[in-house]
Write a protein that binds this DNA or RNA. Structure first.
Length: 562
RNA sequence: UACCCCGUGGUGUAAUGGCAACACUACUGAUUUUGGUUCAGUCAUUCAAGGUUCGAGUCCUUGCGGGGUAGCCA
């Protein structure tokens, strides 16, 4: 027996913090939560937080709750609650319990009265504008509110009357009594309750006062027994307040840990940006395959696994970094390369006729479904004398490095024969409309006795047997790394890629005829595609998920430059 | 110009005072009936200066750079 030297797994700073607290006995388990406000659709950035929170709970045999932070009735809707739950499940996670911050409104109210009685909170009659003026600035301390020294009795009376609807919206607020001179502005007597007559998506018109985020979040965490309250960096300055409330209340005190949110090059995840894209019709909706929403990626054809892998891959830190979008594209390629069956499809067809092919003969070719996975099996494809090949795969005059089909050249037809091109037919404008070849009967794929070696292999479909389909060629919505950087007088929509969607008619091999909505395949030599929900019995619609790596494209582009 | 956080290759993430590692990109080359895949290789004196130490990416000081914060939004 040799001593196994455990390779120490590298841990991110959140895991390290968790380990410390478990070791020291500060906490006895990992209980997390994902706390979205139901005011919009989840985007790829949320996926990072979801994977983090659910993943941490999973690896430590803890729990992760889903809690809707619904403390602002003017922005929240039930529709979003549904969509968020659906997206989380699609990503492959299941919450241990479902909560709403609004379920805690009664408890929060009781606790507020407790703070008032302890002299830690007061009712302030300043309006929003006056409050702002009293708060001071980043460099100057604030001034105490004239109502700061009311007695607990008076505050309690006023607070109850606030709750009972005696005062107008915005006329008063309950504030925590902390320190108007604190260098941390969050501690300058933050508002705990505002008067707001709005119908809440769950509590209806029961309340006319609503607790703020700061006064709700930590307490909700506490009630649920959360141990690690993981949030994004912009809440760093709120942590002292989070801690203050828990201490003053003497309740279970979770640890807040902040991490850098996901930023991806070429994407714009801001709510305002996404709303504009949808509202002004730059995309077809929140689930447009080009959108940065979870539903967008889902419809585009991304797999939940690829998104989860991506999130693990980019790691968690406190540094505000930008991840290159190719990392995400790479993640979906990596997954689909393993699982997607190969099929042949021609998206920009030109006719190829085999002049020595016996009239009317149809032969079945055997093709492997996935060269990397023997278990994926084989399929049969009809081969005939009338084929379509990709226009791009033929050149009358080709550069030396071009090893596809050229005039007087040879190429292998994937899972078929080697063909030699001897002539082309052109239309009046000189465009090639038909390529004439002979096939080499001894070169059949799988039983090749010709001994010939050709450099190129191209894909094809039999014209007579191919199915006509609609193919939506999606590309990035923005071609620049950071679309939020704009010149004077311009906006991010000026960065929009005019070619982010091209719709073409494609011809696919018969095996694809029964592909169902949601099925993902690789069109050989082209990319990965998924059958879109818009497909009908008459016509299938394929979305391009991501193209294959294109080494030749790079070589060619370089050649054009030099 | 107050407070808080952060600076490690082109991009990210590790290294927990002891040989700067891993992934992605890029570029080579090999393999390949997908110009795909796979495999091999190449690409850094850790923002700067000073200090502590036998030894510093790591600890201390200062500077520089980036981000956050002045909602009765979250």
């Amino acid at each position: 027996m040799t001593e196994s030297s455990e390779p120490r797994e590298s841990k991110n700073f959140v895991e390290q913090a968790i380990e410390e607290d478990l070791k020291s006995g500060r906490f006895s388990g990992v209980f997390t939560r994902f706390p979205p406000e139901p005011n919009g659709y989840l985007h790829i950035g949320h996926a990072k937080s979801i994977c983090l929170n659910f993943g941490l709970a999973r690896t430590h045999s803890g729990t992760c709750n889903l809690r809707f932070d619904d403390t602002n009735p003017t922005k929240e809707e039930t529709e979003y609650v549904e969509s968020i739950m659906e997206d989380i499940r699609w990503l492959g996670f299941q919450w241990d319990s479902l909560h709403f911050a609004s379920d805690y409104f009664d408890q929060l109210y009781q606790w507020a009265e407790k703070l008032i009685q302890g002299g830690h909170a007061y009712v302030c009659d300043l309006n929003a504008e006056e409050t702002r003026q009293y708060r001071g600035t980043l460099t100057e301390p604030g001034r105490n509110s004239p109502h700061r020294d009311r007695s607990p009795e008076e505050n309690l009376d006023l607070f109850r009357r606030m709750r009972d609807g005696e005062f107008e919206d915005g006329s008063r607020a309950l504030r925590a009594k902390i320190d108007m001179a604190s260098p941390n502005i969050n501690l300058r007597d933050p508002v705990m309750y505002r008067i707001l007559r709005a119908t809440h998506h769950r509590t209806g018109d029961k309340w006319c006062i609503y607790p703020t985020y700061d006064w709700t979040h930590g307490q909700s965490d506490s009630i649920e027994g959360i141990t690690f309250s993981i949030c994004t960096l912009e809440f760093e300055n709120h942590r002292p307040l989070y801690d203050w409330y828990c201490e003053k209340l003497g309740i279970h005190h979770p640890r807040q840990i902040e991490f850098a949110k996901l930023k991806l090059s070429t994407l714009l995840m801001g709510k305002r940006h996404m709303i504009r894209l949808v509202k002004e019709g730059f995309v077809t909706g929140w689930d447009d395959p080009r959108m940065f929403t979870i539903r967008g990626f889902r419809r585009r054809g991304y797999t939940p696994e690829s998104i989860r892998n991506f999130c693990t891959d980019v790691g968690v830190a406190k540094f505000n970094s930008t991840i290159e979008i190719v990392r995400l594209e790479n993640s979906i390629r990596e997954h689909l390369n393993r699982i997607a069956p190969r099929r042949m499809a021609v998206l920009d067809p030109v006719k190829l006729t085999i002049t020595n092919w016996p009239e009317g003969r149809v032969e079945l070719s055997e093709a492997i479904n996935n060269p990397g996975d023997p278990d994926a099996g084989k399929r049969e494809i009809p081969f005939s004398g009338q084929l379509y090949i990709e226009r791009d795969d033929f050149r009358e005059e080709a550069p030396r490095k071009f090893f596809r089909l050229k005039k007087d050249g040879a190429v292998r037809l994937r899972a078929g024969y080697i063909v030699d091109c001897h002539d082309v037919v052109k239309d009046e404008d000189g465009n090639v409309i038909e390529i004439l070849c002979t096939y080499d009967p001894e070169s059949k794929s799988g039983s090749d006795i010709s001994g010939r070696k050709v450099k190129g292999t191209i894909h094809w479909v039999s014209a007579e047997h191919a199915t006509e389909v609609e193919v939506r060629l999606y590309d990035r919505l923005f071609m620049v790394d950071d679309p939020s950087v704009v010149e004077e007088g311009k906006t991010f929509v000026d960065h929009l890629n005019p070619d982010s969607l091209k719709v073409v008619t494609g011809y696919v091999e018969p095996a694809l005829a029964k592909a169902e909505v949601g099925e993902r395949v690789q069109f050989e030599r082209l990319g990965y595609y998924i059958v879109d929900i818009d497909s009908t019995a008459d016509k299938q619609v394929f979305n391009r998920i991501v193209p294959l790596r294109d080494t030749w494209g790079k070589i060619e582009a370089k050649g054009k430059k030099s």
